[in-house]
């Protein structure tokens, strides 16, 4: 038994917060272990009672790649900038998969853990954060397949990949978290999000150069195209790992700027809605 009289207990003031409350990062830091535990829980549980287990992390992108290869390479004969189509699309499917799983699970993270929210206090930000970061494990598994494919196709990435890939991974995480903060907070009140999500991911996939090359977009539309942060991420991946396309330029800067805007606005909105989560969920 610890002797509670030894240390002076911390004093907590509970009062209504108003306006755009402070982010309370101190509290989030205090609960950092919970983020780790939640990631760990999601990973442990993800493939429980499945026959193929973590193989799904490989099967999903590989099957998508095969379908894309058939549809866009064999049937539609889409240009892949002179790179073998399978690896061209797989390189893009990796960050895309990370983004879409993160977006989907994080957007539902509050509603699927509603009993935690209605019964106990912790910074609610923990839930979407853990969901987004949990997707990194699947990403890492699929990355091994990509490295295998690179060996097979005899593609040597430039040394820049070492810093560029983590940076683009970070960018897709930031984007996913930003959008998920909006959607998860809205989802607490309006379950419409659950129905809109599959449509949003599908639509987003079409406007991102995963199955095709961004070169097919005419130059005058490129700036508008760059407003999609995932376009910058996917192009960046292809550039860093396969050496295709242009090095990051103004368009990537626009992409990154947009994703940071989404994240910051998401944080403010989330914090503002957090107050009523336990009452409305």
């Amino acid at each position: 038994m610890t002797d509670i009289s030894k240390h002076e207990p911390t004093t907590v003031y509970i009062r209504p917060t108003s306006g755009f409350a402070a982010l309370n990062l101190k509290d989030l830091w205090h609960f950092r272990e919970l983020v780790v535990f939640m990631i760990w829980r999601d990973i442990k549980v993800r493939y429980k009672q499945t026959l193929l287990g973590a193989l799904w992390a490989i099967i999903q992108p590989v099957m998508t790649m095969l379908v894309f290869n058939f549809l866009f390479n064999n049937v539609a004969k889409v240009s892949s900038d002179g790179i073998p189509y399978p690896i061209f699309s797989f390189t893009a499917l990796l960050p895309w998969g990370l983004f879409s799983t993160a977006l989907n699970s994080a957007s539902r993270s509050l509603t699927s853990n509603h009993n935690m929210i209605t019964k106990t206090y912790f910074p609610r930000l923990v839930l979407p954060m853990a969901s987004v970061l949990g997707g990194l494990v699947d990403f890492a598994i699929a990355l091994v397949i990509l490295l295998g494919m690179m060996v097979y196709y005899k593609i040597t990435p430039s040394i820049t990949a070492l810093w560029a890939v983590p940076l683009f991974v970070l960018s897709s995480i930031v984007t996913a978290l930003g959008v998920a903060l909006w959607l998860s907070a809205i989802n607490v009140k309006y379950r419409d999000v659950g129905y809109a999500l599959p449509f949003i991911s599908q639509f987003w996939l079409f406007i991102t150069p995963v199955a095709y090359s961004s070169n097919v977009i005419s130059d005058k539309w490129q700036v508008i195209y760059a407003l999609n942060p995932m376009a910058g991420v996917v192009n960046g991946f292809r550039w860093a790992l396969l050496g295709s396309g242009n090095p990051p330029d103004m368009l990537v800067a626009i992409s990154s700027f947009i994703s940071i805007i989404i994240l910051l606005s998401g944080l403010v909105y989330f914090r503002n809605m957090e107050r009523t989560f336990a009452d409305t969920i």
Binding site: T11, Y13, T17, T120, T276
Partner: peptide
């Protein structure tokens, strides 16, 4: 009191966890 939900008005001071 356990900070699950915020009061609409008023305040609580709690010493300890």
């Amino acid at each position: 009191l356990s900070r699950v939900t915020e009061p609409t008005t008023g305040s609580v001071t709690v010493r300890g966890r």
